[in-house]
């Protein structure tokens, strides 16, 4: 992969709570740090079985909104 340049963005909320990282890569992607969604959770929440799903911190969404 030819991704040479990346920027990691970390947000800190007012009360000092840090959002996990968001990575901007030189090939134009935004990569979020989160955890994969296990099969059990996919089933319980009726989420797609085969899609690439990650669960991210709520602070991520606030940070992305701010970033954009």
């Amino acid at each position: 992969m030819a991704t040479k340049f990346r920027v990691e963005l970390v947000w800190t909320e007012g009360e000092g709570k840090e959002a996990a990282s968001i990575f901007l890569t030189s090939d134009g992607r935004v990569i979020l740090q989160g955890r994969g969604v296990p099969a059990q959770e996919r089933e319980a929440l009726a989420l797609p079985r085969d899609a690439d799903l990650i669960s991210v911190d709520r602070n991520h969404i606030r940070a992305i909104k701010d970033m954009l």
Partner: peptide, 11 residues
């Protein structure tokens, strides 16, 4: 070309 930059944003 080979930079990994970390931007930490507080209020």
């Amino acid at each position: 070309e080979h930079a990994a930059v970390k931007v930490q944003r507080a209020p």
